[in-house]
Write a protein that binds this DNA or RNA. Structure first.
Lengths: 223, 223
DNA sequence: TGTACATCAGTGAACGCGCGTTCACTGATGTAC
DNA sequence: TGTACATCAGTGAACGCGCGTTCACTGATGTAC
């Protein structure tokens, strides 16, 4: 072999990483194979040594983006379990920094509507990752039962992703900032004070106004 | 002139109407000029007698879709002013019927993320229509002040659109239905029972579980 | 340890295709007389 | 009222371009001896 087995795996991973950024920035059909390969330091002809088709890369790249979000959220909830972790997630999600850097942000807000129009493979992958994300949020959500926590998680995810899509569509000006701050305040209020049912855990109230992952623009998942 | 002035206006409007459906179904770049014209009963060459570019049509077509939503919402709130009207809007929005028929549904959920990546003209139009939609909802929203009502409207819009995007991305199965029903229940609870501040108007409670616009699949706005 | 060979990640030209746009043309009808 | 002409919405072939994919080839390196 011209290159070692690890070399190929590294190249493959590099293409997937770069693609996950460019696809989130430009949309599902916004980047071509040639540019994707160039970004990874290669020429377009070598693409098919790594992927069966552009669609196969799309699936891997979007899955990668969502895995990064999931890992990021897990890290946050490990540092601050329960409602405080949820609050940290929401707080970092609904920021101008996240809005203005979709390439390193949430794939649901960037690509969700488009993925819903893609082939069965992409849709299945996306649905499975969505379930994972709901599970991560539900594990920290308030609620007397597992069902109540899951409901809380789903509603919070819908509110977060909807607000981010609106904020991006609103253009980045005052209206856009308003959307972010209003929804952030409301989601945090829901999350920390929610007296829906008799809570199993005591309600923690840490770090409501900070934006932990959005401070410095290091190239990491913000979602 | 070969055709009367009204004839041209009718043809123009027909292209815009058909385009607004196909674009919502397939995405901002999912339909070509040739197919769009064929759908309107014409050949592609005549396109530029009506529009300066494909982009110009995109802007008109998405604006049309959002105007239909706005008109539809106004009609509902005229029939049931206040919280009851808001409840009717949310109720019809978060249905499998709306989820499964994006071509006649809400342009925010179908195209919002993509429009955010388009040119300045499309983004400006979209932001302006978003403001209109917020205003329509805010006029019926509960709240001691205009600001509180506007906040309520923005949060409700984010929750609605986010849930619809998630439900479509989740694939249409049990998980997808779960998203719709959970968020619908929660949004309706927020809307009708919300004891946020001393309400100016008495809270009406009509037709909570019905889906007025989604009963028969006549080709009308569902959003 | 040194040599010969097979492997295969990566190259770059070429492919068929569909896209948005242009353009010379058509012919029914509004308008001028 | 009737006739001649100008208009211009709509036609369909053609354009340049970028796309995803294919393919013959390269050459550094892992492997067999």
């Amino acid at each position: 072999m011209r290159y070692s087995r690890e070399h190929k795996a590294e190249t493959h991973a590099r293409i997937v990483r770069k693609a996950s950024v460019l696809l989130r920035e430009r949309g599902v059909h916004g980047v071509g194979v040639a540019e994707l390969m160039k970004e990874a330091g290669l020429t377009h002809g070598g693409f098919y040594a790594h992927f069966a088709s552009r669609d196969a890369l799309l699936i891997e790249a979007v899955a990668h983006a969502m895995d990064r979000s999931i890992a990021h959220w897990r890290k946050i909830t490990q540092a601050h379990p329960g409602q405080a972790g949820l609050a940290d997630i929401v707080d970092a999600y609904l920021t101008p920094t996240h809005r203005d850097d979709p390439g390193y942000g949430c794939a649901i807000a960037a690509l969700g509507a488009e993925i819903a129009r893609e082939g069965a493979g992409a849709r299945r992958m996306f649905a499975a990752k969505l379930e994972e994300m709901v599970a991560v949020l539900a594990a920290e959500a308030d609620g007397a039962t597992a069902e109540a926590a899951r409901n809380e998680a789903i509603a919070t995810l819908a509110l977060m992703t909807g607000a981010l899509v609106l904020a991006r569509a609103a253009g980045g000006g005052a209206f856009s900032n308003e959307i972010l701050s209003i929804v952030r305040a409301r989601a945090l209020a829901d999350t920390t004070a929610a007296p829906k049912t008799a809570a199993g855990k005591p309600v923690a109230k840490k770090r409501l106004a900070s934006t932990p992952a959005a401070k410095k623009p290091r190239r990491k998942a913000k979602s």
